[in-house]
């Protein structure tokens, strides 16, 4: 996180480049007889906030899981900056720069906040088991160097006072913040967020929204966000992809989505007037 504050204060809107960071090309994912995703395609451009919305069971989390490598689609291909990542193991995809926050609480409960964030630095660290065993020179120096990096994120997320607490003892909102910090520690090239605001109160939601916008401006990375809170989505998303029963039923900017009859039907069950 180099100089998050400094960059966000300059408020420079990042320049958009034409090449997509992520390209999802016609993926179909089935579990037995259930088709979770049917021929889903979309692109995520550089430094855009892209929301994926849809009713429950629409396939939003499945889409993220495919991008992460947890689910292997039966058909279709996934690209990260022109490199095909279909079928890669999740840790390989992480190595290529895909960071992710989770639905619910998926932290390492037995580690402190600092150590949770340091696990996010795992990819960028090199100390092996033998150097760890010896713990002299290199291993120690690397720990201190990465600690400094992690402290920048702690600063940014305003969690200084809890850095040594076990995450198991923290409130829900703070834990979600640590989850975000752990993903940021990976220095991601693209950030996937799965329902970052579910179960939060208004203040906690406002904090997360502020962080999301700051991250985009400071790091100039695209953020893919799955979220149910429509006010938030309409406010912060540049583009929206709407899923229903595994199909993409609409895509476009918030204004277009708000008035799209198929979206209204999917959400409200209203008949489409012709």
């Amino acid at each position: 996180m180099p100089d998050v504050a400094a960059v966000s204060e300059s408020a420079a809107m990042p320049a958009r480049s034409a090449a997509p960071i992520i390209r999802v090309d016609g993926i179909t994912l089935r579990f037995g007889g259930v088709t979770a995703l049917a021929d889903v395609s979309f692109e995520i451009g550089a430094s855009e906030i892209h929301a994926i919305i849809g009713p429950n069971g629409a396939g939003k989390s499945c889409t993220l899981n495919c991008l992460n490598g947890f689910n292997l689609p039966q058909q279709g291909r996934l690209f990260l900056r022109e490199q095909e990542i279909t079928g890669f193991a999740p840790h390989r995809i992480a190595r290529l720069g895909v960071g992710r926050t989770f639905q619910g609480l998926q932290l390492f409960a037995g580690l402190s906040v600092v150590d949770n964030l340091l696990t996010g630095r795992h990819l960028h660290m090199k100390t092996g088991a033998l150097e760890g065993f010896i713990y002299r020179g290199w291993a120690h120096a690397e720990e201190l160097r990465e600690r400094r990096r992690v402290e920048e994120i702690i600063d940014f997320l305003e969690i200084k006072n809890i850095r040594h607490k076990l995450v198991g003892s923290l409130s829900y909102g703070l834990r979600k913040r640590v989850d975000l910090g752990r993903a940021l520690a990976m220095d991601p090239k693209v950030l996937l967020m799965d329902e970052p605001m579910a179960g939060m109160n208004l203040e906690e939601k406002e904090d997360i929204v502020r962080f999301v916008i700051d991250i985009r401006e400071a790091l100039d990375i695209p953020i893919v966000i799955v979220e149910h809170d429509m006010h938030v989505v309409m406010d912060i998303a540049d583009r929206i992809t709407v899923l229903d029963w595994g199909h993409v039923i609409a895509r476009g900017n918030p204004q277009a989505i708000k008035s799209d009859p198929t979206v209204i039907k999917a959400y409200l069950g209203a008949e489409v007037r012709r």
Binding site: N68, F70, A89, P90, H91, A94, R95, G99, R100, F102, Q106, L107, F108, A109, G110, L111, D115, L118, T119, G120, H122, L123, M125, K126, T127, G128, A129, E131, G132, Y135, A139, E142, E143, R182, A183, M186
Partner: peptide
């Protein structure tokens, strides 16, 4: 208290999340 130990605890506490952050 080094990288390996944290990875061990990460695998113990939540192996899915560990995999996603690149372990």
């Amino acid at each position: 208290r080094s990288r390996t130990g944290r990875a061990f605890i990460a695998v113990r506490d939540n192996d899915n999340a560990a995999e996603v952050i690149g372990i």
